[in-house]
Write a protein that binds this DNA or RNA. Structure first.
Lengths: 320, 320
DNA sequence: CTGTTAGCGCCTTCAA
DNA sequence: TTGAAGGCGCTAACAG
């Protein structure tokens, strides 16, 4: 490659990185050789020697969940705008492999975003000890030296409970996410707090997906709730389908709420009453924070984004 | 690290790779030092020298589309079972950046899976010229020296048209995907072929997502179709919502069909009549093929998976 | 402006 | 069974 252009290997590097000044004539020859040979620099080698990969990494628990692809998208777009590539690792819901994936990513990227609602706290500490550019999303652990961007999951669900209470509901079932998930813990805590306003509740184990919501429905109904608060929109949609199959009308006979406001929430019938964090904002703030740690800027304070209740058709007055 | 264990750097390598024989006592000391220091080998360096990354790459056009996360998932699981990590790159619907992303991945992975329905043929040729382990998914181009796994998109849509024809439909609108997409071309070709059976059709530009289906609906209805054949399930779901808002009942007044059978297809109301390739099979065959090229096994023949029509509630007899 | 030199962290011969 | 030595492909000084 270098010889094809009749220059030294260092000059090729200079031309391609565009930082240093090179005689236009030589640069021309290099460019010609590059296109002629289809040469592409090896990012691994470049990163190894320079420490910069021009790449960021994102670790998510499950790419099949549209909520994660949402934050991912936002970060990817921002990174691209700053000339950085994004590499994604999917833990496929195995919290135990997340630390290893994160550390691997960290050695092939300039910084990483970790969305790990279920990673063990001890693993989180190991990650923090790396002292590398890591931003944690949707997870709060006290005493962890990691920049964090979260969403007020507690407040969101609490507000949802407030809405249901005003609609006259007194007994609800919480369709829980995976045990050990930070989001799940926050939401269930909020549901329990709502007891102070006369809202009784039971937690029914469900999960993260449509099928789990569908399957948990019958179990939940045995407790005679007038409203179902689902861990997320997918679970809510699954429960709605189960209700329809049982001839139970939503929201006339039963109210169902979701969480996250994924794209589909407004497209099901009835449209889903849910809670929404501004995903754009989440992506913006996450990127802002990662960039700060990347460039050694002063560390931004932890961010906790407000969440809004989106009233659509799936929650209504309690039936008499 | 090596000195912490009192051995040479080469011995550490041997212990960690586990291939060569090492005196148990020394191995013990190395392991102790590894856990004590939290040492993790650098994958970039390892790959650079050995040429093996123990990683495969997957390039998809858009992670927000559940269809892609489906094939991704299947491949990830298989790779993990064989001890390989998966790294994902999202082209964010910019077909023009796909070649570069693919080449980048190729230098950080042992092989890649490229799902690129819209990548330019010229770029595809460049990729093929790399003579690297690349498997192309859902794309057929004649004369391309690349192993391919596809789905019979033409046959799927044609079968769907057959169903609509038997239901008495004579005029349908095709809600098209992005121009230039292989899938889109195949499906539109099938719709046009159906003219031979008395099915007239118009193509209405839509896109890949729910919102595009929603927006294309009005335009499509101006042509007076009794059935809408959507590019994919998301577009169909968007169109269904638009229909509902216009007071048009599905399927009594209008039939709507999708493609892909994403998880949500069965959860909307009415449940979506659509076509499904076995995603498990797609993932299986893709992995099988990638593994073959990875290990230099004889190249499997191109695979084209059959697709089934899934009749659910969204397509019915033509209204009289 | 450009070529030479010295590694980045690791694996893999080659001797010992 | 082990250590020393030589790169993998590239960038970042350093001399010219």
């Amino acid at each position: 490659m270098a010889e094809a252009a009749g220059v030294s290997i260092a000059t090729v590097s200079r031309v391609l990185s565009g930082r240093r000044s090179v005689r236009p004539e030589a640069a021309e020859r290099v460019h010609a050789a590059v296109t002629a040979l289809g040469y592409r620099p090896n990012p691994a080698a470049k990163g190894l020697v320079s420490g910069r990969f021009d790449t960021i990494g994102v670790l998510v628990p499950d790419l099949a969940n549209p909520y994660f692809s949402g934050v991912l998208k936002a970060v990817t777009v921002h990174a691209a705008a700053d000339g950085l590539r994004t590499l994604v690792a999917d833990a496929d819901n195995h919290a135990s492999s997340e630390l290893e994936l994160a550390c691997g990513l960290l050695r092939q990227a300039d910084g990483i975003v970790v969305v790990a609602p279920r990673m063990a706290v001890s693993d989180l500490r190991v990650l923090a000890a790396e002292c590398a550019p890591v931003v944690l999303v949707n997870r709060v652990e006290s005493g962890l030296a990691l920049p964090v961007v979260t969403v007020d999951a507690f407040g969101a669900t609490f507000a949802l409970c407030g809405l249901l209470s005003r609609l006259g509901h007194r007994r609800l079932a919480y369709l829980a996410g995976t045990a050990g998930s930070w989001h799940n813990a926050e939401r269930w805590r909020a549901v329990q707090r709502a007891a102070a306003f006369g809202l009784e509740s039971v937690a029914i184990p469900a999960g993260e997906g449509v099928d789990q919501g569908y399957e948990a429905f019958e179990h939940a109904m045995r407790h005679g709730p007038t409203a179902l608060v689902a861990f997320n929109d997918l679970v809510a949609i699954g429960a709605m389908r189960a209700a329809r199959q049982c001839g139970i009308r939503v929201p006339e006979d039963l109210s169902i709420t979701g969480c996250d406001d994924i794209a589909l929430a407004r497209h099901v019938d009835p449209a889903l009453t849910t809670t929404a964090a501004d995903q754009r904002a989440l992506g913006d703030r996450t990127w802002q924070m990662l960039r700060a740690v990347l460039y050694g800027e002063p560390l931004p304070d932890p961010v906790c984004l407000a969440v809004q209740v989106i009233e659509r058709g799936s929650a209504g007055p309690v039936p008499w």
